[in-house]
């Protein structure tokens, strides 16, 4: 299990002088599920890309178990992007096999069964629905036995029942592999449903405006009364928090 310690002084957009992230500091405890919520364009994806090594993080402090994260080169990382990003010319089995160092048919079969796609291994991504493709992308992220999982609005643009099913699937997979999770979303109820802690970000140049521990028992319900009450309490306290402000009026 890994612990992240993040301190970003200032991160500029590529080939630009505009700052996207400013004075961001937070940590992720081993096995913790942290959700990040912020308005569009607040640099949430940039933050995940910095953690994954897709964005330059020179000069920033990104520590993993006290050592430099270094683009997650030394740690197993699972990343579920906004779009499934499956190789269209490979079957579902081949897409999963691609990220594994050796042939592991049994593992792939088990994973596909876990995500409810048993028997679909020989299908190409185009033969699957959007929800199924996202399940394959989630299976791919968990195939590598990740120590850290990054999820970038993975249930975006899905219908509510499918998104609920996938959230349940994610909870079960996370429970089984005990990874630390950083989950980016703009959906507060989704964050409450899944996360141990929620970090709220401001508009660009983005910084952390609030952090809150979701002290609700697990497993949580979709639109359960406890969850709704917790959400209402938070929104009463900070009515503009989803727009990137903690101002009370």
């Amino acid at each position: 299990m890994i612990e992240l310690d993040i301190a970003i002084k200032d991160k500029y957009y590529a080939n630009s002088t505009s700052v996207v992230l400013k004075d961001i500091a937070f940590n992720v405890k081993p096995g913790e599920f942290v959700a990040i919520i912020g308005p569009s364009g607040s640099g949430k994806t940039t933050l995940l890309n910095m953690l994954s090594g897709l964005e330059d993080a020179t000069g920033q402090k990104l520590l993993c178990n006290g050592k430099e994260l270094n683009g997650c080169k030394e740690y197993q990382l699972g990343y579920v992007f906004q779009q499934p990003r499956l190789m269209p010319w490979l079957t579902v089995n081949e897409n999963l096999q691609l990220v594994l160092p050796t042939a592991q048919e049994q593992k792939i079969e088990t994973l596909l069964a876990q995500v409810g796609l048993a028997g679909k291994g020989d299908y190409y991504p185009k033969q699957l629905s959007g929800g199924m493709q996202r399940r394959v992308a989630i299976a791919r992220a968990f195939a590598v036995n990740p120590e850290l999982i990054l999820l970038d609005e993975p249930f975006n643009s899905l219908d509510a029942p499918t998104a609920a099913k996938l959230r349940l699937l994610l909870v079960n997979l996370c429970k089984s592999c005990e990874s630390s999770v950083v989950f980016v979303t703009h959906d507060l109820s989704e964050a409450i449903n899944l996360a141990d802690r929620i970090i709220f970000m401001s508009n660009s140049p983005s910084s952390i405006i609030h952090q809150v521990t979701v002290d609700l028992p697990k497993p949580r319900k979709e639109c359960g009364s406890l969850e709704l009450t917790w959400q209402a309490k938070l929104m009463n306290q900070y009515p503009h928090i989803l727009s990137g402000s903690v101002a009370s009026s």
Binding site: S52, G53, L54, K73, L77, Y79, F81, Q83, R85, V144
Partner: peptide, 12 residues
């Protein structure tokens, strides 16, 4: 580039 990023993230 998105697909190449997948390769990079999963250290292919």
């Amino acid at each position: 580039e998105d697909l190449l990023n997948v390769a990079k993230v999963y250290k292919l």
